[in-house]
Amino acid sequence: MSDDVIMPVEATHILMFARAVGDDNPIYRDAEAAAKTEVGHIIAPPTFPRAVSQFDPDYFLRLKPGEKWFGSGRNATGLDGPAKSSGGLHAEQHFEYHRQMKPGDVLSVVTREGKTWEKESRRAGKLIFTERVSEYRDQDGELVITARAVGVKTERPVEQN
């Protein structure tokens, strides 16, 4: 994997993320209301660690200036020839919270590859699973979040029932 990704945690980003998951809880957007809670400050929703991709300069699912993109524009895909698989689907996600993320954190995120395994599926052909484990540490080196993601690449699009 690449070097550490540095993820600055900001209140505006937390607000936008909470809106995107339809969560109007004031602890994600209102500093005054958050100050009156047991926690005492704004925190991030439990799945916010996912937003680390915003800070990975090489993230493959973000359009980059001057590079071909596999989504549609003039054509159904911007790539030449048949569209390749987009890199797979998400099979599992696990988070461990050593503490809650909060505005002002500057997290260093290190990801390492875990296990790989295969399975045969009726709906999508051969499935190849890969696991990635990420550790999010704060400015003091303290572990904040441990994340484990399992991705799956399918032989063909998943059949619909």
């Binding site: 936008m16 993320f17 996912r50 937003a51 991709s53 915003q54 359009l63 989504g71 549609s72």
Partner: peptide, 10 residues
Amino acid sequence: YAGASGDYNP
């Protein structure tokens, strides 16, 4: 969700 998370998969 794409905008907030950074996952812009089409």
